[in-house]
Simulated scan of single mutants.
Amino acid sequence: MEQGATIGLALFSAGMVYGLYLLSEWVASGFIELPFVMLDMVAFTAIVLGLQTLFSAFS
């Protein structure tokens, strides 16, 4: 149980950090069009997989 929760939390945290980095890049560019859609999908996929893993560790 603890391993699943740790893996899920690590995956969620990595996705959040990466997503916040992409957000800061977008803000620094002056809110122009988002050129990195594939990178956004990677970040949010990591967030969702992390949450799924974290919650399934307790069931």
Score class of each variant (00 low, 15 high):
M1G: 09
E2R: 00
E2A: 08
E2V: 09
Q3G: 02
Q3M: 04
A5H: 13
T6P: 00
T6I: 13
I7S: 07
I7Y: 07
G8F: 01
L9A: 12
L9C: 04
L9Y: 07
A10Y: 03
A10N: 05
A10V: 06
A10L: 09
L11H: 09
F12W: 12
F12D: 11
F12Q: 14
S13D: 10
S13Q: 04
S13H: 07
S13C: 11
S13N: 12
V17W: 10
G19T: 09
G19A: 15
G19L: 08
G19N: 10
Y21L: 05
Y21R: 08
Y21S: 00
Y21W: 07
Y21Q: 10
Y21C: 02
Y21I: 00
Y21P: 04
L22Y: 06
L22N: 06
L22M: 08
L23S: 08
L23Q: 06
S24E: 06
S24T: 07
E25T: 02
E25Y: 00
E25G: 05
W26Y: 11
W26P: 00
W26K: 01
W26M: 00
V27L: 03
V27E: 07
V27G: 02
S29W: 10
S29P: 08
G30F: 03
G30D: 06
F31S: 08
I32N: 05
E33D: 05
E33H: 10
L34H: 03
P35A: 06
P35F: 05
P35M: 09
F36V: 08
V37K: 13
V37P: 05
V37R: 15
M38H: 14
M38N: 11
L39C: 08
L39M: 14
D40G: 12
D40V: 14
D40A: 11
M41W: 15
M41V: 15
M41N: 14
V42W: 04
V42D: 04
V42H: 05
A43L: 07
A43H: 02
F44E: 03
T45Y: 06
T45Q: 00
I47T: 01
I47Q: 00
L49M: 07
G50S: 01
L51K: 00
Q52N: 14
L54H: 13
F55Q: 12
F55K: 12
A57G: 11
A57L: 13
A57T: 10
S59F: 13
